[in-house]
Design a protein around this nucleic acid. Structure first.
Lengths: 318, 318
DNA sequence: GTTGAATAATTGCTTTTTCCTATGGTAGGT
DNA sequence: ACCTACCATAGGAAAAAGCAATTATTCAAC
């Protein structure tokens, strides 16, 4: 059986005429005749009772017609589905992001995204790097916003921007007097960290040249579960910490008694990238999404690699 | 698009493996690969995201799968429908019969029919010859039991049996004394007829060698609308009439004051046939139906042409 | 780091199916 | 008696689907 054959049957049933049905299907009359006959032979039934003068559908044929119509509907639905999804920008894009990035980056891009790619729908999730990679592997998300380099061949990477670390300390801390804070200034401080698994914790230790078990001070075992909590600990005088630049736009920056300033350390930044499966088919959607991000970043971060900051005014006019 | 292709897609989705899917569909892996690719090209979408290691269906693919499953179901339904109707004896047979035959023949055959062809369903209608032929032409019935020969090329005929006419008269009629009633005996009688359109009326006139307008006696304009009414008129002494042999089994034969006996006229019979469209596909069903009729007739009628009366006792044993 | 196993894609060729043009045959109408 | 309208058939060309063998890639194991 064949969808085409069913279309032929429907045409004959509709027109009551093999010739007209053939024309309607853009084939020759013998072709249509043959296909109908083939189908009848295959099913071992007579669908049309025909004489030279008339074509009448049999009761069985009538019953078949009902199902044939349903099949044509479903086939049409498939084509429409394909049509709708053909624009790779359309359809939901499942994005995961790390917790030290997501709450600060998303507010920056959601509104412009709506404007620039209205047909794109985002499904966001917020998890730590390892979890995101696992979910990416399992096709549960389509791409992940990470701040670590990923080596696995399975994945590809779209570098977005470099995000400097700032040092955060309580207003009454001695750092408040300094113009520049250098690496050696950090060495004597109690570096507060996020919980294990957060890449920010590793990166902070990396910048400060400490190893996992060397965390100093009485709060060595105290690790915050979120960046906001971490800031509160800093404000309470438990120590200092490093925060990514975009987090400076968080609500905590005003009236929390915590001050932050850039570090005078060149390497003190993390590269944020969009990581995806190489096999993911909608590369264009990812690229468009990445472009929206890089187009809408504040100057506190540096665009990565070959990216240029877009001329925003010009874009708005067009 | 093609039902086969959808089956391939479903197999891949099910197994997550092109090779296994191919085996499941009894084709080679390259064949299946090629067809999937063709379908993807045709729809301009990616249905499966594949690496050497894994095959994952895309969201679009998943959506398509739903419709594909529905299509497969409908296709299966069509095959089942065909299967059910493949036995040409099965399925309803729409039979029309003339009013002077139907009420007397049907009681004889309905029970044996149920026994011999339990899968056959009859839809009966009772109308006069012309109406039946008209309905046959319009495909409203599949065959007609008639007592007239039909010339139209459109129709075919299956002769069944010859049914003699008997003469019916009131018990106090002079015929009651006669052993044999011949043509000349009829000539002086008032021949009562059925209403116009009934073939029996024409045939009775034919047998008695009278023409339409020559009907004799005071009741020339009185024509009965049914055979039962006709008999009542005979019983009331309005005249005589001819009745077909099978009608002798009717309820009127006892206690109505009407007597019937065979005519001593060789040609005084009508041939009952099954008439059908040449284009009607289920010839076997008609033949089987005809066989049931001829197998279950009383000896008052003579089987037509090449038909033999079945050995009933033997048949019952087997 | 090289080899091996697994697996989908590609290639080249064969078989099957579909399609078209031309022709045949039949029933109805003029 | 011819003409017309119509579906069926025949023969050959084109397209599609199929297969076996090979290639390419990636993961895993030694």
């Amino acid at each position: 059986m064949n969808i085409r054959d069913l279309k032929y049957v429907m045409a004959v049933a509709e027109t009551g005429h093999f010739g007209k049905a053939a024309a309607q299907c853009f084939v020759s009359q013998p072709t249509l005749s043959g296909q109908i006959k083939k189908l009848e032979d295959e099913l071992e039934i007579t669908i049309f009772e025909r004489t030279n003068r008339s074509v009448e559908i049999t009761p069985v044929g009538e019953a078949i017609l009902t199902h044939a119509r349903s099949i044509m509907e479903q086939a049409g639905a498939i084509k429409q589905l394909a049509q709708a999804h053909r624009d790779p920008l359309a359809g939901p894009l499942r994005i995961g992001a790390i917790p030290t990035l997501s709450p600060y980056l998303m507010p920056l891009i959601l509104v412009p995204l709506k404007k620039q790619l209205p047909q794109m729908k985002l499904i966001l999730s917020e998890e730590m790097t390892d979890t995101l990679l696992e979910r990416l592997h399992r096709h549960e998300i389509d791409a992940a916003l990470l701040a670590t380099t990923v080596e696995k061949q399975e994945f590809g990477t779209l570098p977005l921007f470099d995000e400097p670390f700032w040092v955060a300390y309580a207003r009454d801390h001695t750092f408040y007097e300094k113009d520049q804070i250098r690496l050696r200034d950090l060495n004597n401080e109690n570096l507060l960290l996020l919980a294990e698994g957060h890449c920010l914790a590793d990166q902070a230790m990396d910048v400060c040249r400490v190893k996992e078990r060397q965390t100093r001070g009485e709060m060595a075992d105290l690790r915050a579960s979120s960046l906001e909590t971490l800031i509160q600990l800093v404000g309470a005088g438990y120590g200092i910490t490093l925060v990514p630049a975009l987090a400076m736009r968080g609500s905590w920056t005003t009236g929390s008694g915590v001050v932050a300033q850039p570090l005078a350390i060149a390497s003190a930044s993390r590269r944020v990238s969009l990581v995806f499966r190489h096999s993911f088919p909608r590369r264009a959607a990812l690229q468009a999404f990445a472009d929206v991000i890089t187009d809408n970043l504040p100057n506190t971060v540096t665009l990565a690699g070959n990216r240029k900051r877009a001329a925003k005014k010009k874009r708005r006019k067009s």
